[in-house]
Design a binder for these strands. Structure first.
Lengths: 222, 222
DNA sequence: CTGCAATATTCAGCTTGAATTAAGTTTTTG
DNA sequence: CAAAAACTTAATTCAAGCTGAATATTGCAG
């Protein structure tokens, strides 16, 4: 298991690094945002522990950039105590978990292994969601109930795109552009039709429509 | 959020306009330099996207004239690929950022929101407030209690504008102009209605009424 | 090559909900 | 207190979205 630790505090950083190494992880330590982003793109880490307060580039931005490049490496963020906005922002940017500083090293261990377990499915070509999973090899969704549904090519591409961008408003134009290679289609309701079919297969609540703006996957209700 | 798009290409112009509109901006499109300059002086835009190769009057000159008249509206310039002289000249004339053509629409979005945030002095990804935060991706407000509220397009544009101008008295006319593309409202109480709806979602105290003048967001007392 | 099945796309009638207007109520202030 | 401004609620409306079915296309087996 290979971890990237991004922490600029000159005491805490190396301290965490050795603690994690003793726990059996291979740990690279990085101390600024720009370097972290490059490093994360370069090497295939199994997990990243990311401090948000970083020199050169804010941790949140680093995370967002990774996610925009479709990186799915699990990320645990370290936030200052009580800053709930940071946590919300972190989750929205695609973090998998967070820990408030200061924390017990045991808590970090616990969360790391929890996140790694949860994300174990990812490595095997599966996209996980709270209520179902998508097998990328067989292009099949498996619901909580055990029910399976095969997806057609277009259904699959659309759903995968949704799952890679949860919580974002995705306009029909954007979706068309990503589902089809090159297409500047005018008035077609293909996306509506396929959203309809996906809802029939995975349930109605998971793709929310934002009238006039697009669709949001996996966001909670209001 | 109201943008002025200056682009003479008859394909690219309208294409960008609709893309930006779908992203939630009110966009006016202008196709020549003279008209652009007048329009920019006339209306209170939040940002200008300016192509440099324009008929009637070069984009650079338009920009310089605006700046000479003390307009501080952020400007993103579109330049032909690799023409670094243009970029330098653009920055010297007072541009805030540039994009080389051809570009991905996502890059434009990214730069627009970066420039808007920079110009309003805000951090990235989310608009924060002491008592709630606004997630621009899902167009959702998250209250301190964890409660979430989806916003409609108009509610979102209005609230974002408030959040980018905290502590300022914003007249109904000004708000109408920024939330809608074409203003010139007779007497309509749209703003009152939407302020009412926002107050229901984020709480009553956050938007204060300044009778006869407008509204103030996030100010303490009066 | 032909015909069939699977998938993709278009279409049309129907439903929904955001935006707008309007009307009635409350608050402010001169 | 009266008039103006702002608030609130409710009704209307029409574009956006939904959806089942028809039609077109594609890939493949015979």
């Amino acid at each position: 298991m290979r971890l990237l630790l991004v922490e600029d505090d000159p005491t805490l950083g190396p301290q965490l690094q050795t603690a994690l190494q003793r726990a059996g992880y291979a740990v690279d330590l990085t101390t600024d945002g720009v370097e972290a982003e490059i490093q994360g793109d370069l090497e295939p880490y199994d997990l990243v522990v990311l401090d948000l307060g970083l020199p050169k580039r804010p941790g949140l931005e680093v995370l967002q950039n990774w996610r925009n490049r479709d990186s799915r490496t699990p990320v645990i963020i370290l936030t200052a105590r009580g800053s709930w906005q940071e946590k919300v922002a972190g989750f929205n940017a695609g973090a998998d978990d967070y820990i408030s500083k200061p924390f017990q090293i045991e808590e970090l261990f616990a969360r790391i292994s929890a996140v790694l377990k949860r994300s174990a499915g990812f490595a095997s070509g599966e996209l996980q969601h709270e209520h179902f999973s998508l097998d990328e090899h067989s292009q099949t969704v498996i619901l909580e109930s055990g029910e399976r549904h095969d997806l057609t090519g277009t259904e699959f591409r659309l759903l995968r795109y949704f799952m890679l961008h949860p919580g974002h408003v995705l306009s029909k134009t954007a979706l068309t552009a990503h589902v089809y290679e090159y297409d500047e289609d005018k008035d077609s309701n293909v996306i509506e039709v396929y959203v309809n079919r996906l809802r029939q297969k995975i349930g109605n609540d998971l793709i929310q429509t934002k009238r006039g703006q697009g669709y949001v996957f996996g966001a909670r209700q209001s």
